[in-house]
């Protein structure tokens, strides 16, 4: 099956979901709209609370989808996702350590620490894996993330700091604290990184060939591999800074794109961006409205829905292939 990705299709998909996310939430906005004096309140809820959240979710989701596509192409394995190779755990460990060492630290610094931690763990992994094929990098990432997870568990048990309980919610990927300044910084970073990653995807062809033929064609696969990893890290870091650690988007978006569109990496970039954005917006919408007033972090919704959906996707793919 393949759907042509016309501008009408993209807009026809994005706009209704964007509207859905703006108009729905823990409270029903439509009745407010009917009453004259409540209209201003409704506008306030939409512009102050929902707009930044929804846009940041879309940007973060698009970036993570792209990071997933890059990692999957790089490793030649369709199960790779930035969240399972230790980016998330590295970010989490840095934040937990930061809070333990400097309890007085202002909360605005946490994203910075998270980014530093995520980057450190990926760079360490990259150096460890020199001279091995990319699938080894993914497997070592799985090992690294379980080691970091064990250390986080240990720190949580050893410390009696109440603050950490709150941090754990943030670390499960939440857009609750998104405000206008988060929106601005995410917009700035994404406007650089998303087009750049799209361009990078146009150069992924040589990675799909076997090493010998790509060398004969004169492609510098090493440089492209490095760039891919760097780009995936940068996109992951922007996501961590904006929303904590979100998993599964990087896995689901490329799979959806491959199912619905012709599977050339050059042409997958755009659908991956769109599906990543859609999935994250929807997960955030479900998290804030499903059990309202209880708010569940988007990252948890993604994990809970992501695994079953992913299994269904795999099965569907299998049926199409025969």
């Amino acid at each position: 099956m393949s759907i042509r990705l016309t501008p009408t299709f993209c807009l026809g998909l994005l706009l209704p979901i964007l509207a859905l996310c703006m108009l729905n939430g823990s409270i029903d906005t439509l009745p407010l709209f009917m009453e004259q004096q409540q209209r201003q309140l409704m506008m306030q809820i939409i512009t102050e609370l929902r707009l930044p959240r929804v846009i940041v979710a879309a940007l973060v989701g698009a970036g993570l989808g792209m990071a997933g596509l890059l990692l999957q192409t790089l490793s030649g394995n369709r199960l790779a996702d930035p969240s399972i190779i230790g980016v998330n755990q590295g970010a989490a460990l840095a934040v937990v350590l930061g809070i333990l060492i400097m309890p007085e630290m202002p909360p605005q610094w946490l994203p910075l620490l998270g980014v530093a931690g995520g980057l450190t763990s990926v760079i360490a992994l990259w150096r460890l894996c020199r001279g091995t094929p990319p699938i080894a990098l993914i497997l070592m990432g799985v090992g690294l993330s379980s080691l970091l997870g064990a250390l986080i568990g240990c720190l949580l048990i050893l410390s009696e700091t109440q603050q950490l309980a709150m941090v754990m919610t943030w670390l499960s990927g939440s857009f609750a604290s998104t405000n206008h300044s988060t929106l601005v910084s995410t917009l700035v970073w994404s406007s650089v990184l998303l087009p750049a990653s799209w361009l990078l995807c146009q150069r992924l062809g040589p990675l799909l060939l076997d090493p010998l033929s790509s060398r004969m064609l004169g492609a510098r696969t090493g440089a492209i591999e490095g760039l891919c990893l760097l780009m995936a890290c940068a996109l992951g870091a922007v996501a961590v800074a904006a929303s904590g650690t979100l998993g599964f988007v990087g896995l689901l978006a490329p799979h959806l794109a491959r199912l619905l569109h012709p599977p050339h990496p050059e042409r997958l970039a755009l659908p991956v961006l769109i599906y990543g954005a859609l999935l994250t917006m929807l997960a955030d919408l479900l998290g804030r409205s499903l059990f309202a007033p209880v708010q569940l972090p988007a990252g948890l919704m993604l994990a809970m829905l992501g695994v079953p959906v992913f299994i269904l996707l795999l099965l569907w793919q299998q049926r199409i292939r025969g």
Binding site: I84, S145, A303
Partner: peptide, 21 residues
Amino acid sequence: AENLLLFGALLSTLFGALTTV
């Protein structure tokens, strides 16, 4: 093996999410 391991890691993430909820 690679797929078993990666899928196992995914499943662990799911279990972790369910526990947090």
